[in-house]
Structure formats: C-alpha cells, structure tokens
Amino acid sequence: MNIFRLAGDMTHLLSVLVLLLKIHTIKSCAGISLKTQELYAVVFATRYLDIFTSYISPYNTMMKLIFLGSSFSIVWYMRYHKIVRRSYDKDQDTFRPYILMLPCLILALLINEKFTFKEISTSFFLFVMWTFSLYLEAVAILPQLVMLQRTRNIDNLTGQYVFLLGAYRALYILNWIYRYFTEEHFVHWITWISGLVQTLLYADFFYYYFQSWKNNVKLQLPA
C-alpha cells in the first residue's frame, strides 16, 4: 500500500459518501445521472466477483463491501425511494448505457492475449469481467457529464462528487507509476490506457471546476 493508492481509495470513498449523504439528507437526487450510478454498480459488481474467493486483507474486503453497498443503495434510492425518485430528472438523463457496455465487453473479450477461447474457465471469465469493469469505469461518468452539460446548473455537492471521482483515478495512475518504479509491479498496459482515458474525460470538467473555484463563481459548464 502506498500513499497514492491510499489517497486514491479515500478520495473514491469520499466521493460515494458525499453523494449518498446528499441523497439521504436532502432526499433529492436533482442533477444526478441514474445511468452513471447504475454503471458504477455494474463496475463494482463485475470487479468484485471474487470478493469471497480471494481474500487479500480486511481493508480490501471492507472497502469492496462499502463500494458495493453504497453504489447499489444510491441506485435503490434513485429508483425506488418514494421521495428521492421524484427529483430524478429522467428526460435529462438520456444517455443509453448499452452503447457504453457493449464496446467494453467486446474489448474485454478481444484484448486478453493471455487466453485463447479454448480455455473457457472461471479464471478466463473472471479476467474478462475485470477488464470489462476497468473499461466501463473509464466511461461510466459520461452520462453524468452529458447531464451536467444539459442542465447547466451544477450544485456544489454534485461538482464535488465529480471532482473527487476524477481525482481518485488520477491518484491511482500515480500509484501505478510508483509501483512500477518501486515494486517491479506493473499493471496491464490496457489498465494504463483506460485509467488515462478516464482521467482525461474529467480534464475539461477539472478546468471549469478550478476556474469557478479560483474566481469564486458558481460552476457553469459551457453548452
């Protein structure tokens, strides 16, 4: 465990807790994209399939449970909670998740030189699910960014949520660089690319977020 990864995990944890707290306290999900939240639930579900089979550490298991629990409860609140669901603006949240999920699944099936199709085993299945969840995580924020562009108003909790989410992945990239030089541990080149794509997707948001913070004005995204 290095400081970049710990900071990344804490930032990630903070982002989901900020969102959950917002929805729970003000009983509103205005400006939040349900599609993005559902995609994140899928990301965690497909990445933590081995939560009961491969035990790493109490920290690892606890964080996995928290991420699974928080992402699914956010989806539950936005879909079924009688008060929260009324504030969900579905005709602003029109991004079709399948146009993100299908390419990620195809990419996950195509790019794993480790396996050929003849060895359809559980580890093949798990590996495909891991890579699928990595790619999906890189693009899962798109529906939310599209919705922010559309609604143009962005309350500061949602802004903080997106900012923390982007910051966590940037910290993870620093973690991969750190591990590459210190532990002779390297992640798959595909992981680098999906992590970079994910961080770059946030780049323009970061720019506007920083501008609004510097000029102390409300965050406005250009149309």
Partner: peptide, 10 residues
C-alpha cells in the same frame, strides 16, 4: 491469476 489492475487494488 494476474489481474489487469493489481491483485490487491480496488
């Protein structure tokens, strides 16, 4: 089984 994202990473 090496994971695409470090085996001990979230």
């Amino acid at each position: 089984q090496e994971q695409p994202q470090g085996h001990d990473e979230l």
